[in-house]
Write a protein that binds this DNA or RNA. Structure first.
Lengths: 224, 224
DNA sequence: TGGTAAAACGAACGTTCGTGCTATATACTC
DNA sequence: GAGTATATAGCACGAACGTTCGTTTTACCA
């Protein structure tokens, strides 16, 4: 019930907090969670530093909240759409394809939020780093699960190592993000897709193959 | 001649500069080029901020010099050792294997220097970003060249796309670096090696195959 | 309409940042 | 040993950082 009420004394604060975090995610994806300064954030939102600060209590809390907000966006924009596909090879492919499309779309100036902040915090112990590591592990586990489900559905060869393949797909996605951010070259996404599809089709059973080629043309049409 | 003289009025300054940059590379690999502050650097080297600052003139120049120093280390520790191998499949494998071993060795607290600073500066235009992009392009070109040489030597199938394969290898290396920095899991290197070797052996001709298996056992023995 | 709690503000705190300016210490040349 | 260029130090600056404080505005409820 408390989640649904849009008015009330506490409602305005909640709305402001949401607006702050939305801007925070955008800034942080480009300038990092440390480059995300409270003054800069306040300026962008036309509010006072102190008024903004009161919503969080410390910079670290702001950073953690920003990470959490980015996770919600990621789930909404990538995970959920991919999970509309039926479990199996198609969903696995959708997870990768939508991830790449989302990064390429340029919704965030800095590309993948988590790739950016993971590199920033991987040598900086604390609550922020811990949460980032958890969330990226979630993502890796989601990939791995999708692989196993595709195996269980009979779409994918059963004797491939799901952890290994998830690692490879994740690496290719990170590689595409890296190349696009540094060279603005959209061919990086094509290369990542090609590499992923090559593996999928090589490991696909006769039952899984058709699923894949159907998805491939559909995606191309949507992008072209 | 000027390069060889180790004494002279200008010599001391050169030596200090070198010492500064060596420390700078270590700090920057972990805390980033922006987290690399002049005060912190001076403290670590037991010298004054202004005395240190005089060697560079601006923070940006210090950052560029640090990037240059990291490049020199990378060439000395990865490129040169790999180029001792004969041109062809072996050298290609060495480039990847030594890169992974170097990151795994933990010489830098923050893992691959360039992976770290590329993520930090990819949305920050300027001389630093430009130099980082150039150097990483050099690395990608080195990989691509090694692939083409392996093809020319008859070790590798001629109809594979060298640019595509270089992208995939680079991605797997970045992925291993990412996983190791975030989870301290050395299995990430094993996974990257496995993925690279799988591709190499699949694309290897009958002439190239033996080269690879010889190198594989040699590396395993060296690491065990 | 008056009371009240939440929300936002403005000003200031102590630090640290990069960057000047000026002076001193060092080491080489003549 | 005097002269000189180089290398380092000391000190101060303006700006920005995260954070705290007391106050004012806003919006709901009785």
């Amino acid at each position: 019930m408390t989640k649904l009420e849009l008015t009330g004394r506490k409602a305005q604060g909640e709305r402001t907090r949401k607006a702050i975090l939305e801007t925070a995610v955008h800034i942080a994806s480009a300038e990092g969670l440390e480059g995300l300064t409270i003054g800069r954030l306040a300026l962008e939102l036309s509010m006072s530093k102190s008024g903004l600060f009161a919503h969080f209590g410390s910079k670290e809390e702001l950073q953690v909240a920003t990470v959490e907000a980015a996770r919600a966006i990621f789930i909404r924009e990538v995970i959920k759409p991919a999970f509309e596909a039926t479990q199996g090879l198609l969903r696995l492919w959708k997870l990768c394809d939508i991830w790449l499309a989302y990064v390429q779309s340029g919704v965030f100036r800095g590309g993948c939020f988590f790739a950016a902040v993971a590199a920033e915090f991987d040598s900086r112990p604390g609550a922020v780093r811990d949460r980032i590591a958890e969330i990226m592990k979630e993502w890796l586990a989601t990939l791995r699960n999708a692989i196993i489900e595709a195996q269980d559905a009979g779409h994918l060869n059963k004797d491939i190592d799901a952890t290994q393949l998830a690692f490879e797909f994740n690496s290719l996605e990170l590689g595409a993000n890296w190349a696009f951010q540094l060279y603005s070259d959209p061919r990086a996404f094509k290369r990542a897709r090609e590499a992923i599809l090559e593996r999928l089709s090589r490991y696909a059973t006769t039952a899984g193959g058709p699923l894949l080629s159907a998805s491939k043309t559909r995606t191309s049409r949507a992008r072209g």
